[in-house]
Simulated scan of single mutants.
Amino acid sequence: MRRKEDVVRGVAAGIAMAATAPYLTLKLLWLTGSHVGARDPKALDSLWTVNLLTFGMDATALALALSFVRPWGRRAPAGLVAFPMWVATGLLGTILVAVPTDALASLVLGPEHRTPDQPHLDDTIADWVFTLVYGGFGVQGLSLMTAFVLYARRRWAGLLRSRIGDLPDSPTRNVQRAFACVAALVALAVAGVRAYWAAGGEVGLPIHWVEQRTRSIATMDAAMAAMAVAATVATLVLVFRIGPGRRLRGPLTVAWLGAGSLFGWGGYQLVAFGTETTVKDLPSATPGLMNLVQAGQFTAGVLVLAVGAMALTERAVQREQPSSRAALSGTEPPRDLAAR
């Protein structure tokens, strides 16, 4: 069984690495001055910093996929693997929800219609670039997550077999609950605003964003709203030990995906779109609400990350204590510790 899982993990990681190649190549061409796939070269040149950021993010995904199949990947510190994978899962998982939903909406409702003078993102980038990028993200997301699940089952098998009631009742429990409640309030506020924008609301959006809004962008807002609600519910289930006999892996997976989306997309959009200090004209101005929503996403993700870090660190310490006592008494530690 394990050999079969190793083969599947290797194939999935290989597909994930191959799926990064087109995107990394395109970004490298843009970073070095090429305008391939661009309808507006000047607009593309203004995105040099964003292109550098996204190139680094996809290069990290490539390194992650490699770590899932190499011996050094299991010896790497847990945080060095888990944190970037958490962010990658949030970013790619949201796309995996939004893109099929958008495709289904187009199938049911038909293509969007816009006036010839209406500005659109397609005026900057050729259609084939969107197909290449989001098609690659879809393949990359599915394969990278598959490889990670199999990697996690081997490295953290003990954790994934646990139940919610097995989480340690620690001195930081009240701190974890306080962080989780604040994160829930912020995330639900973010979800409300994102849902409002997804439904066609315009308050808080820059003028040029309103002019360029499409069904795809609305679908992405809806996906982010859903992720925020999922992160809220799953995190509260974990910190308040709701259903102690339930397997930990279910709510942990939902909290992982939802909080990763909050942190990843909130942080990315803040860096890519929310840090401009020069306003060329009024339509380019970004009202504070949009930046506030992005900052709220990022903050909620950080709070859930802090809760998870406290709980899992305490669990690891708790499981090391029997090992220390066993070493002092000369007995062998439990075999389950190998899965830490």
Rank of each mutant, 00 (worst) to 15 (best):
M1T: 10
R3Y: 12
V7M: 11
V8P: 02
V11W: 13
V11R: 07
A13I: 03
G14S: 02
I15G: 05
M17D: 01
A19H: 03
A19S: 12
A21H: 00
T25H: 10
L28R: 02
S34I: 04
D45L: 10
S46M: 12
T54M: 12
G56S: 12
A59H: 08
T60V: 13
A65M: 07
L66I: 02
W72L: 03
G73Q: 08
G73P: 08
R74N: 01
R75M: 07
A78P: 00
A78D: 12
P84K: 06
P84L: 06
M85R: 05
L91S: 11
G93I: 04
I95W: 10
V97K: 01
A98Y: 08
A103F: 14
L109Y: 13
H113S: 14
D117I: 06
Q118F: 07
P119S: 13
D127C: 00
V129G: 03
L132Q: 12
G135R: 06
F137M: 09
G138C: 10
V139M: 11
G141R: 01
G141P: 01
S143V: 00
Y151F: 15
R153N: 09
R153E: 12
R161H: 15
R163K: 13
R163Q: 13
R163V: 03
I164K: 04
G165F: 11
G165T: 03
N174M: 03
R177W: 11
A178V: 06
F179L: 13
C181Y: 05
V182I: 11
A184Q: 02
A191T: 00
G192N: 06
G192V: 03
R194W: 08
A195Y: 04
A195S: 11
Y196T: 00
A198N: 04
L205Y: 09
I207M: 08
H208G: 00
V210N: 03
E211S: 11
T214I: 06
R215N: 13
I217T: 14
M220Q: 14
A225I: 03
V229H: 04
A231Y: 05
T232E: 02
T232G: 04
T235V: 01
L236Q: 06
I242L: 15
G250N: 09
G250M: 09
G266P: 02
Q269V: 00
L270T: 10
V271A: 14
T277V: 14
T278M: 08
K280D: 11
P283G: 06
A285D: 09
P287D: 05
P287S: 04
M290W: 15
M290F: 12
Q294F: 15
Q297C: 09
F298Q: 01
F298I: 00
G301H: 04
V304H: 05
V307W: 10
A316V: 10
A316P: 00
L328T: 07
G330A: 14
G330M: 10
T331K: 14
D336T: 15
L337K: 07
